[in-house]
């Protein structure tokens, strides 16, 4: 049960039940949909970027606890971050989950998702919000798929 408790920490369950920044933005500068066909996670994410800085993020997610919590925590952290900082954050987040060493480097609240590393089948759930964010920043049309 211990690694399950690491995975489903209270913070994660709380974010999955009460996701922060849930909903849609009135006038986003970018929007994207993300889909994880393996388990059916579906996220629609709006982002508002001004002067190279993320001003607002909002999302509508239907999915597992990991993907919804990851979207919620991520959205909380991004406001005020530059695009370069955002991309760097994603890289460090991916490193924490799949890199050769399990290092959580300046990931702040996202560190609660470190337990996902022990569940390789669930890494895509945790990274789906970031992939979708990246697509929204590029304002790509269509749906980002994890498969």
């Amino acid at each position: 049960m211990n690694d399950l408790r690491d995975l489903y920490q209270e913070v994660i369950l709380d974010h999955s039940r009460n996701p922060r920044n849930a909903g849609r933005l009135a006038e986003p500068s970018g929007t994207a949909k993300g889909h994880n066909p393996l388990c059916g996670d579906l996220i629609t994410l709006d982002v508002l970027v001004e002067d190279g800085t993320i001003r607002d993020v909002s999302f509508d997610a239907k999915g597992c606890a990991i993907s919804v919590a990851a979207a919620s925590i991520m959205s909380d952290m991004l406001k005020g971050k530059s695009l370069a900082e955002t991309h760097d954050l994603f890289r460090r987040f991916q490193d924490m989950l799949t890199g050769p060493d399990a290092v959580a480097e300046n990931l702040d609240k996202l560190e609660v998702l470190a337990g996902v590393r022990e569940f390789p089948m669930r890494v895509k759930c945790a990274t789906l919000p970031f992939h979708t964010l990246r697509a929204a920043l590029d304002n790509q049309s269509g749906t980002v798929q994890t498969e």
Binding site: L4, C39, D41, C64, A65, I66, M121, R122
Partner: peptide, 22 residues
Amino acid sequence: GVHPHDVGTVLDREGVAVRVGH
């Protein structure tokens, strides 16, 4: 109240292999 994917992960750790998804 619990997504099938999360149920599947917990069951796996209990030695129970089920299919979750569509």
